[in-house]
């Protein structure tokens, strides 16, 4: 059997203050798999993503990405394996869209690139990323003047520039209108289908998540409580208790996949 792209073994993390602990949890993600991570606010979804990205150090257990322990990797080596699109990002300095995307090339730069006046990302690569994310016209715009959708696409383009096999997304469509959300999710699904990118995406919208992901993970109270194909998980009555709400389970009229909507 092929080795999973992401392996979490008995992962545990205690938040500063020492009163809450995440895990211990174990799970794996197969290469080229799109996993949706759902659960109520404060369930620990963002924390789990940050642990995989080695931004916070584990208290126990280990996380392997492509067979390497993330906590032992050097920063550039880690960024070659894992890219991260944050929920929000604000900066007081107005780097342009192009300059932000170029930062995705940092992990692969040589010492010669470091001394050069130009960025480490090749011009053709940059143009391709701008085209993919529909940002070509905006490339000289300051990042902090972008709309929510444009900013998210810029951060996605920077993450894609890392050319990492694993992409972590923290509620990427929060604050996006349905049109931009749809485009964003289609783009991510396209990366999974064409580049065999492995994706773990924290997400809130239970009506759309089942249309995109291969597997759903459900977190509640800092534990991973359910996992399986989206249709199975969304039909599971335990979901109703986890969200403390009576949600209506229906089938998508065309795709036939499970959706949870307001009753």
């Amino acid at each position: 059997m092929e080795q999973p792209m992401v392996t979490m073994a008995n992962v545990a993390y205690t938040w500063p203050g020492g009163t809450r602990t995440l895990g211990p949890l174990s799970a794996t993600i197969a290469s080229g798999h799109f996993v949706g991570l759902i659960g109520p606010n404060g369930a620990g979804k963002s924390t789990l993503l940050k642990l995989i990205a080695a931004f916070w150090a584990l208290d126990a257990g280990q996380i392997l990405v492509d067979g390497e322990s993330v906590s032992r990797l050097s920063a550039p080596e880690r960024a070659k394996l894992i890219a991260f699109v944050p929920q929000t990002l604000d900066t007081q300095f107005d780097l342009t869209v192009k300059e932000v995307i170029e930062l995705g090339g940092i992990n692969r730069r040589s010492w010669r690139d470091r001394w050069a006046f130009q960025g480490a990302l090749l011009a053709e690569r940059l143009d391709a990323l701008l085209a993919t994310t529909e940002l070509t016209e905006l490339k000289e715009r300051p990042f902090n003047t972008l709309s929510g959708g444009e900013a998210k696409r810029t951060l996605l383009a920077a993450a894609l520039a890392q050319e990492a096999p694993v992409l972590l997304l923290d509620e990427p469509t929060a604050h996006l209108d349905p049109g931009h959300a749809l485009k964003f999710l289609n783009l991510v699904r396209h990366m999974v289908d064409t580049q065999k990118t492995t994706v773990l995406m924290a997400y809130h919208d239970l009506a759309t998540v089942g249309l995109y992901v291969d597997t759903l993970w459900v977190m509640d109270q800092s534990q991973l409580v359910l996992q399986g194909p989206p249709d199975e998980v969304l039909k599971n009555p335990a979901i109703q208790q986890i969200y403390d709400a009576r949600l209506l389970e229906i089938s998508h009229p065309r795709a036939g996949r499970s959706m949870l909507i307001f009753p």
Partner: peptide
């Protein structure tokens, strides 16, 4: 400039 967390994710020690 994008913050310490984003710099970390981009591969900066």
């Amino acid at each position: 400039l994008l913050g310490e967390e984003q710099a970390h994710h981009l591969g900066i020690p």
